[in-house]
């Protein structure tokens, strides 16, 4: 198949106009690690939410964060695209390197970070616009106006999010007219439309029924060929099904981080074992 890649001037966005996508490859210093976290701590005002977390998240794999509510897993996830900036009085120490670049360094372009690190939220949040406009929102924001480019990006992203067949005939009806599961896949399509390298998912299935959850999980499995995926989940089975590696957090600390198979079958830490066997949390 022909693959024509268009680089949009001034934006650094690569838009693929054929059906095939090449994930933007920016190996940086870390080689196989998409994100490296070094001694990261985080405070909400006076409350410390993360304690000295150090871990590496491998490229093109699915990494799951598990742990009881309030353990800091979502907070850490939101550090990767600096969504915590929206909250007043947040302070981060340590280093978070996304593809080798310290994203908290002074002078970092936050917009650029968020373009490279997409995010899907716990509650599906389509914008009050049409399906088409939802998908191409990020591209429009980046200044792309060419109709053909937008159309191609829309189809590619919707196919990527396994939603194309269901909505191709009503691209211009409201994004809010979709069902819950479809809305969440629409949000995934929106996240991958700007061709990020990493996709963060913050409990993407917590508001969905089992069928819709299954679809999203299949989608995650497909997406990992092109994207590094970090998923926060409360559903241990889900972590076991989709993740290559799993990290267990407890009270703001990274307790254990290993391959999923090892973590679930042979945890080394007592807390991990208690949590995955359902003794607390």
């Amino acid at each position: 198949m022909m693959a024509a890649t268009v680089t949009v001037p001034d934006t650094g966005l690569r838009i693929n106009t054929s059906g095939v996508t090449f994930a933007a490859q920016a190996p940086g210093a870390s080689g196989a690690d998409a994100i490296r976290i070094r001694n990261a701590s985080l405070w909400y005002g006076a409350n410390q939410a993360l304690y000295d977390v150090t871990m590496d998240i491998p490229d093109k794999q699915v990494t799951a964060f598990i742990g009881p509510s309030g353990c800091g897993k979502s907070t850490l996830l939101r550090c990767f695209n600096r969504m915590n900036d929206l909250i007043d009085h947040v302070r981060v120490t340590g280093q978070i390197l996304v593809q080798g670049r310290d994203i908290n360094a002074p002078g970092t372009d936050v917009i650029d970070v968020r373009r490279r690190v997409g995010m899907v939220f716990q509650k599906s949040n389509p914008l009050p616009k049409s399906i088409f406009e939802n998908v191409v929102y990020g591209l429009r924001i980046a200044g792309i106006r060419d109709k053909a480019t937008l159309d191609a990006a829309c189809e590619r992203s919707l196919r990527g999010a396994a939603l194309w067949e269901e909505v191709k005939d009503r691209l211009h009806s409201s994004g809010l007219s979709l069902s819950g599961g479809q809305q969440q896949r629409l949000c995934i399509a929106r996240a991958i439309a700007i061709e990020p390298d990493i996709v963060l998912m913050d409990e993407p299935c917590s508001a969905l029924d089992p069928i819709a959850t299954l679809k999203i999980e299949e989608l995650i499995y497909d997406l990992k060929a092109q994207y590094t995926i970090v998923i926060v989940t409360h559903n241990l089975q889900q972590a076991a099904r989709v993740a290559d590696r799993t990290a267990f957090f407890w009270l703001g600390r990274l307790v254990e981080y290993r391959t999923t198979a090892e973590l679930f079958t042979n945890p080394t830490e007592k807390h991990t074992e208690d949590y995955i066997t359902g003794r607390f949390g």
């Binding site: 917009i111 939220f121 914008l127 924001i141 929106r190 996240a191 439309a193 700007i194």
Partner: peptide, 9 residues
């Protein structure tokens, strides 16, 4: 707002 910001707006 998060939806918009997370796409690089």
């Amino acid at each position: 707002r998060e939806a918009s910001l997370a796409t690089g707006a």
